[in-house]
Write a protein that binds this DNA or RNA. Structure first.
Lengths: 134, 134
DNA sequence: CTAGAAGCTGGAGCCGACTCCAGGTCAAGC
DNA sequence: GCTTGACCTGGAGTCGGCTCCAGCTTCTAG
């Protein structure tokens, strides 16, 4: 499978595929006699794996680790599990924080439809007691 | 109030404060005869405003707009409201997506405690049907 | 055999939000 | 007068994840 076909098959750009290879995400990508990449089933599966892991908010660095673990699954179950748990905890934390902000914004917007002098949103950002940290 | 004191009062670094000024977030920061910044009440309020808006996930560019709106509140209520609504929608969307991922991860982790051959997380990333988009 | 498309490489540029640095200025204390 | 420390400026570097580019080579169709 040519570069072009791989791009069509995955929806990624040639630059992205070459970038993934450059940073060591894709390993052992076969070449034609002239040096062009020939994507085989193995590499395509790696690419799909990367795309799914990205959708799960793993960073490229984490995905590189996951792909390594994938090469020797029996020795690495615990590590994979730990990575997944860390990611889950992070996501939970972010959800919680964002749910809080969403409520806050809703509150300001509600005020906004009622008040008819001043702007409660700007005032909310002016006055709020403590702040949430960064 | 000196730079040092402003840093202590806000928890921001001198570089960050100078950066905020450079990109036009902080305007009309007064100077001493020698050219040193003298943070007054007005500027400090701007800084607090920025910190709260950042906590609400507004970007620095959006905050710059909010600060401008803040200068002429009566003419800009609708714009502020629109900005807040867009931000809220974005946050909701992200919460939804992350809640989905969180569930997905939980599922894989549950499988993981049960199965005793192979790694369900890696396999989950291998096999999943569609993918979630980017 | 040749034109044009597709691919290659190494390296630079982009985004947002800083962070760091060199080299210069200024104010206060000894 | 000299050191020390806070501050100044403009500009470069950082991070992650690409994206774009110039200047080649290789492949494919006519």
């Amino acid at each position: 499978m040519s570069m072009r076909q791989a791009c069509e098959a995955t929806g990624l750009s040639a630059d992205t595929l070459r970038y993934y290879e450059k940073i060591g995400l894709l390993t052992r990508v076969p070449r034609s006699a002239g040096g062009a990449r020939r994507y085989d089933r193995r590499t395509l599966e790696q690419i799909r794996f990367i795309q799914r892991a990205k959708a799960m908010r793993f960073t490229l660095e984490e995905i590189r680790d996951l792909l390594r673990f994938r090469e020797s699954p029996q020795t690495s179950r615990e590590e994979v599990r730990a990575l997944a748990r860390r990611k889950q905890a992070l996501i939970r934390e972010q959800i919680e924080q964002m749910a809080h902000l969403e409520k806050e914004l809703q509150l300001l917007l509600n005020l906004c439809t009622r008040s008819n002098c001043g702007c409660p949103i700007l005032e909310g950002l002016d006055n709020k007691g403590g702040g949430y940290g960064s």
